[in-house]
């Protein structure tokens, strides 16, 4: 399924953010590849480094952050290159859809102008051509009255409508990769359902690859064929989504799946992962999940946590992956 040359290849990506409390290693040792037209989910909880990793791909981190490692997109290196060279890639070859559709849109400009701007700047189109195409894009994201919406301001639209506008903008230049950072988290469940269906159709039609970042495993399950799981700045597990969710090979993935409330099957009391996220400035040695893990032993503290292959296409950073984890098979109580 992965062709010879992946569309995106991230290797050993590390990001250090500079905070008032000192340097913060927000992500490290992140390596993965995305094939053309593939939909990959990136899941993790707050502070896992998933959004930081996404922003690092496009060089959208706050000033003063340091990025090391390599991000190769269609044969070009994106880490360490000048802003000037990134600008034509952003929005045109790689676009991004953000979580909050209110802050991602300019509140004092009409929708038509904002979509048109993307086309004018990235493709050098004139105003007339850009605005005609903007209308077409809105129709593509299933906005019922595109002509009216073009003249409206963001505050006049509902959250779902704003997210449709952002999707239209992301599709405007027919990018080869779309990065989605929690695009449905702020939406109601029925609106989320519609937006997910729209994203699926849009990526099918355009053939664009997608990285879908979310803390919601079920949402990722709906959209993606492969999943990456991050915890405390590191990738801990990856693989085809069905097998990973059915039979997780990292203690964190297993615990996360157990903690999800089920909507079908027998009712079960809430199961939490004990403890709290580790201190981000002083993460534990070895496996970062070991402080909350039920199967951790002494060897977990000393071994480097790198993703090792399991079962061919899959990878896990858990040294107990091979010997088996307790209570595997989070799907046992969850059926459709």
């Amino acid at each position: 399924m992965v062709s010879a040359e992946p569309l995106l290849e991230v290797s050993d990506l590390a990001v250090t953010l500079h905070t008032p409390q000192g340097p913060l290693r927000a992500a490290e040792g992140v390596s993965f590849a995305v094939a053309a037209a593939e939909a990959v989910g990136l899941v993790g909880e707050s502070g896992s480094g998933k959004s930081v990793a996404m922003r690092a791909i496009l060089g959208l981190l706050p000033r003063g952050s340091t990025v090391s490692g390599s991000v190769r997109f269609a044969g070009r290196e994106l880490v360490g290159v000048a802003e000037r060279q990134l600008a034509p890639i952003r929005g045109r070859e790689i676009s991004m859809i953000f979580q909050d559709p209110m802050t991602a849109l300019n509140p004092i400009r009409r929708i038509g102008g904002q979509i048109g701007e993307v086309l004018r700047i990235q493709l050098g189109w004139n105003r007339r051509r850009a605005s005609a195409h903007a209308r077409e894009l809105l129709a593509r994201v299933e906005i019922a009255e595109p002509d009216r919406v073009l003249r409206q301001f963001p505050h006049q639209l509902s959250g779902g409508m704003r997210q449709r506008v952002l999707i239209a903008m992301a599709l405007a230049c027919q990018p080869r990769l779309i990065l989605c950072d929690e695009p449905t988290t702020a939406l109601d469940v029925t609106t989320q359902d519609q937006i997910l269906a729209l994203l699926r159709r849009a990526s099918d039609e355009s053939g664009a690859a997608m990285i879908f970042v979310s803390h919601d495993l079920a949402v990722v399950r709906q959209l993606c064929s492969r999943v990456l799981v991050m915890y405390a700045g590191r990738l801990v597990e990856m693989g085809p989504i069905g097998p990973v969710f059915a039979d997780p090979r990292h203690a964190y993935t297993a615990a996360l799946l157990r903690s999800l409330p089920a909507i079908d099957g027998p009712r079960q009391p809430p199961v939490s992962i004990g403890g709290e996220l580790p201190d981000r400035f002083r993460p534990p040695s070895g496996c970062r999940f070991r402080t909350r893990c039920t199967v951790a032993d002494d060897s977990c503290a000393s071994l480097p946590s790198t993703l090792l292959p399991v079962d061919g296409e899959r990878g896990s950073a858990c040294i107990h992956a091979a010997t088996g984890l307790p209570d595997r098979g989070a799907e046992s109580g969850v059926s459709r």
Binding site: E142, L260, R336
Partner: peptide
Amino acid sequence: AIPRISGDHAQSVPSGQSV
């Protein structure tokens, strides 16, 4: 409308009407 963790991609039927 609730996304499920198990099973294949949901056959989401667009309701055609917003809430």
